[in-house]
Amino acid sequence: MTEHPGADVVIEAQNLDLTFETNDGPVHALKDVSLTIDKGEFVSFIGPSGCGKTTFLRCIAALEQPTGGSLSVNGMTPDEARRNRAYGYVFQAAGLYPWRTIARNIKLPLEIMGYSRSEQEERVNNVLQLVDLEGFGGKYPWQLSGGMQQRASIARALAFDADILLMDEPFGALDEIVRDHLNEQLLALWARTEKTIGFVTHSIPEAVYLSTKIVVMSPRPGRITDVIDSPLPKERPLDIRDTPEFIEVAHRVREGLRAGHSE
């Protein structure tokens, strides 16, 4: 942590390795991955499938155990960080329980973590407001559109006020128009809550539009090929995507992806 004086380091990976033993021999999902994420950053992980971007996110969440190197989250091991409710996780599918209303879905982590009833109510109302779903608490998931369901799942991840939000292709299954809208909302939410966000995506425009830092990865073995600190301002209207700066960053991401492929 001495490398970044002044900034709060939230996630620090050093020479991280993860090898899966399969019937076809070992698969190097992550090899020698080193990365530092500071508090309040919006970091996107981009790369072709098999590059380890999701695996890296799962390591941070202690859903996978690295086989080598070190990884700390808030200065703790990922396991300890989880017990301290350091992060909320959003999956590609909303994964709302069909037998619970939206409000009760958001209460799920709160019930598990033992919040009092009145606090549960208060927090549900707060996060519903945060994702623009006021008035939908009493609805069942099937009564909502795909985009609204995903917003509800983000609300569920925000409900217990973790400092870190890990998102694994959260908008991957949604259409372009809904996606643009949600990206805009996500940036607003990030600005309001000042959370640290790790965001896995396939889409170059999405990564460039959202991030303060873009991590380009490539497969076999899964590794980082480029880390780009975005020069774009924090305030980002959708049409920033037509500016030369945006196009330049996108170009660099594309170059990084190509370089990873041709090796």
Binding site: R82, Y89, A93, I112, M113
Partner: peptide, 26 residues
């Protein structure tokens, strides 16, 4: 994914049973 989600909350086996498995089995 559902099971992973519960793991991210640090849910116990019993909580997983009552909140997820049992209702899903109805």
């Amino acid at each position: 994914m559902q099971l992973d989600l519960l793991r991210t909350y640090g849910a116990s086996k019993a909580q997983g049973f009552w909140k997820l498995r049992l209702p899903a089995s109805m």
